[in-house]
């Protein structure tokens, strides 16, 4: 990382590593992966037996709401990452995204239990 030694605005105006863009794409991959988890969870409600469909439906709906929340966090972060020297994400963004995944795991346990 020899570029780090150059002060801002000299002959290294553009980051050759395209770091902000790579970070934006990482956020997109993450929300996409999250969407796939919810689609898979929803599949269980449509295919197979009707047992536990009501509780399972609520669990999947809550997962979808969490996904929308993460999408909003990601959107905010994607906009912050358009600046040439973006700051690190705040704790709310990091905790929010990870918290949504943890709660989704708990909801998936409920889903697995009621579908038995």
């Amino acid at each position: 990382m020899s570029g780090a030694r150059h002060p801002a605005g000299t002959h290294r105006a553009r980051d050759p590593g395209a770091q902000p863009e790579r970070t934006r794409l990482a956020w997109r991959r993450t929300t996409l992966s999250f969407a796939l988890v919810i689609v898979l969870a929803g599949r269980g409600l449509v295919v197979g037996e009707a047992r536990g469909r009501a509780v399972g439906g609520v669990a999947v709906a809550l997962m979808a709401l969490l996904w929308v929340g993460v999408l909003a966090l990601a959107h905010r972060r994607l906009r912050a990452l358009t600046s040439p020297r973006p700051a690190a994400p705040d704790a709310a963004t990091v905790l929010g995204a990870a918290g949504a995944v943890v709660v989704t795991a708990l909801l998936a346990v409920v889903l697995v239990a009621v579908r038995g």
Binding site: M1, A4, D15, G17, Q19, P20, R22, T23, A26, W27, R29, T30, S33, F34, L36, V37, L81, P86, A87, A88, P89, V94, A97, A98, V101, A105
Partner: peptide
Amino acid sequence: RFSLANERTFLAWLRTAL
């Protein structure tokens, strides 16, 4: 750039969790 790399590592772990 180091902070952004750390953020991407965090996101990669989150995808592992997913």
